[in-house]
Each structure stands twice: as structure tokens, then as C-alpha cells.
């Protein structure tokens, strides 16, 4: 089965299961609205939904950019500054392993519901795969090739550009497939905890006001965003590494 057909089948199945569930589960429309109702909410409240989506995207993208900046600086810095990796590893490991909910709660009580704590949460949830893969990719660089470049009197920059970076790139691209999606999930969770805006906030409101239709609408949007993020990374990644399949 081709990729495309498998996805199509999945989408159709979800719609069918949904319709069947509405029909046979006996759940009230409050908790399980029909697709039509969800469609209506999406349309009727389109400006609120759009605003929420943009707000979530903004947090996710900004946080993701920051996460990349940090991961790239640490990984590339570690190549040239010997102590940097040894110094940063304990921090990275501890931060990665603090239970996320605890950290989020801590951020709320110290910083309130501004943008900064949300960004921090996004960075924390998505920077680790980026860093880990970058480190791995840089370390996988061909030592023999580096030696050959040195005998040609290649500069550090040339060695980075022609050997280290091409070696790290496939690993980095693979990390995006995981981390970009995670950044959107992270943004929504952060809003869920501490925000008056975004898809996360729409979800919280939907829960307190028993608006199943809104929850479904927000869920639908966030799924599309996440999938879109994954798809963009994958397509870009495959384009940049197309030589591997030549």
C-alpha cells in the first residue's frame, strides 16, 4: 500500500468510526458531538479559532526557534570547546528528566501567564531530541575525511562546512520530524496550564463550559497543525537528503 493510500484510508476510517460512535455509543452530543456540529463550530467561531491557532503557532514557532538556537549552539560549541559538553550534559539530563507537570506548575507560580513561561515549556519539551541527534551526527563525522581535509590545509570553517555539517544534517533533519510536532504539543499544553489564549485555552474553556464541540474543533485544528509540522519536516528532510536515495 502506498503512503498516500494508507493515510487516506486512515482519514476515512476515523470519519466512519466517529459517525458510528455518535450513532451507537449513546453518549450525549455534549460530550460526543457529530462531525457536522463540530464543522459548524469551526465555521461560526472561526475568528476565535483562528486567533487561538495563530497564538499557539506563534508560541510553538518562537519556542522551536529558540530550542534550535540552543541545541545548535551547544552541539556545535561542544565540537570546538572541549569542556562545554561535559559541563552542559548534567544540566541537560536533569532538565529533561524533571517531570514536566511539576516544572509547568513551578513556572506558573513564578512567572504567571506571560509568554516567557510558555516559551520555556516549549523549549524544554522539544530541544532534547534536537541536541541529542546533532551531537550524534557531529560525532559520526568521518575522521579519515577530516584528516584528509587537514592535510589540504582546510580551515575549521571548511572542515565544518564540508565534513561535520553534512554528517550532522541527516540526524538533525530526523530530529525535526519528532521535535517540531512536539513543539506544537508543548505550546498547547503550556497554554492549557497558563494562558488566556491559544488552542490550549480553548480546550480548557471547553472543559469548564461542557462544550464538547469546541474541544473537538480545537483538537481537530491541533492535529492538523501537528501533522502539518511533521509533513513539512519530512518533505524538507527528504528533499535535502535525496542524494541518499539516488
Amino acid at each position: 500500500m502506498s503512503d498516500r493510500r494508507a493515510y487516506l484510508l486512515m482519514l476515512v476510517s476515523v470519519a466512519v468510526i466517529w459517525l458510528l460512535a455518535v450513532r451507537w455509543s449513546g453518549l450525549p452530543p455534549l460530550t460526543l458531538p457529530s462531525p457536522v456540529k463540530v464543522g459548524e463550530v469551526l465555521w461560526d467561531e472561526r475568528s476565535a479559532m483562528l486567533e487561538g491557532t495563530l497564538s499557539t503557532l506563534f508560541t510553538a514557532l518562537l519556542g522551536y526557534a529558540l530550542a534550535n538556537l540552543i541545541a545548535l549552539s551547544l552541539a556545535i560549541g561542544s565540537v570546538y570547546i572541549r569542556w562545554l559538553e561535559a559541563f552542559s550534559t548534567p544540566w541537560v539530563v536533569v532538565l529533561k528528566n524533571i517531570p514536566f507537570v511539576a516544572l509547568a506548575s513551578l513556572l506558573i507560580i513564578t512567572m504567571g501567564s506571560s509568554l516567557l513561561p510558555r516559551l520555556i515549556i516549549v523549549v524544554l519539551v522539544c530541544f532534547h531530541p534536537l541536541l541529542a541527534n546533532l551531537n550524534q551526527g557531529l560525532k559520526a563525522a568521518d575522521r579519515v575525511l577530516i584528516d584528509r581535509m587537514r592535510t589540504l590545509d582546510g580551515s575549521r570553517w571548511e572542515i565544518f562546512r564540508y565534513v561535520l555539517w553534512p554528517s550532522a544534517l541527516p540526524y538533525y533533519l530526523a530530529a525535526h520530524e519528532i521535535a517540531f510536532t512536539t513543539s506544537i504539543v508543548g505550546a498547547i499544553v503550556a497554554e492549557w496550564f497558563l494562558s488566556r489564549q491559544g488552542l490550549g485555552h480553548i480546550l480548557v474553556q471547553g472543559m469548564t463550559e461542557y462544550r464538547g464541540d469546541r474541544i473537538y474543533a480545537a483538537t481537530l485544528i491541533s492535529s492538523v497543525l501537528s501533522f502539518g509540522a511533521y509533513w513539512i519536516c519530512r518533505a524538507t528532510g527528504r528533499h535535502l537528503t535525496r542524494w541518499q536515495r539516488a
Partner: peptide, 27 residues
């Protein structure tokens, strides 16, 4: 100085021609 080791050390994402050109670009 030119060196070649037992295992060919080529940039995997560059073609044969580009790998040879790379020596000229760097030197």
C-alpha cells in the same frame, strides 16, 4: 601534500566529480 587512506574518505553527499573538485576548492 595529497593523502589517500585504505578506506576512501569521500563526502557522501557529493558526487565523484564534486569530491575531486573539493580538493581544488580547499587548496
Amino acid at each position: 601534500v595529497g593523502v589517500a587512506f585504505q578506506r576512501a574518505a569521500l563526502v557522501p553527499s557529493r558526487t565523484a566529480l564534486e569530491n575531486v573538485q573539493l580538493t581544488l576548492a580547499i587548496t
